[in-house]
Amino acid sequence: MAGLSRVVEHRAVQYRRTFRSSVFTSFLSPVLFLTAMGLGLGGYVDASGDAVLGGLSYLEFLAPGLLAATVMQSAAFEATFPIIGGLNWQRTFHAMYATPLSPSDIALGNLVWMAIRMAMIASVFSAVIIVLGAAHSPLVVLGIPVAVLTGMAFAAPITAFSATQRTPNRFNVIFRFGITPLFLFSGTFFPIESLPDVLQPIAWLSPLWHGVDLTRGLVLGTVGQQPAQMVAHVVVLVAIVVVSTWATVRMIERRLIRG
């Protein structure tokens, strides 16, 4: 634990020096996106009647989904470039390994830092949801840890992958064929029931769909209506995080030992 916290401390000092440049992408951009889509586009959606979204305004439908999806995007970024930088460019992880810190301290410290970053982003986003009146339940507070859990279901496996790479060339594949399609087709912008029947099971495979559905249940207070499905979401997400955290420790250890 002590070693892990030193790694988190290092990441926090780094962040303190660079956070100004990330304020827009982390905090402002998602809020602008929510306002433009939820209020602007939502005005047209709502004009066609509220029956399509089960009585919800478009803003109410979109906001929780976008919370989970925003955290996922941040997770994908945090799990790629800083990891490959620490192992290959600045090699700061190798510097850490020359001290009493262990590979698992380095791996887990970075994952914990990513969770902290995501919690910051989710908190700001949740506050905006509350201010816009799109939260229906005090459970909105639980939307923050669930969004972080969703983000970690991406951060941990992507970190394990990044630890095997020496250049960022393949990251484009993750963003283009992974993050972007999931962002669009995981029930964030429209219910997955709107997808053609053959595509719906694919949405169920998306970790983001599990996160979006669960976050929406909490923010709108409807979580009690389908308890079994909600529990299943948590189980799926936790399973992904546990397995890929183990993989991250193994991959980082292998890479550090190779030099």
Partner: peptide
């Protein structure tokens, strides 16, 4: 293996923290 985004001093202090 220095952290090039940090200052000279921060590099030293953080490294001491690892110990």
């Amino acid at each position: 293996t220095l952290d090039t985004e940090l200052t000279v001093r921060e590099n030293l202090v953080l490294y001491g923290r690892y110990f």
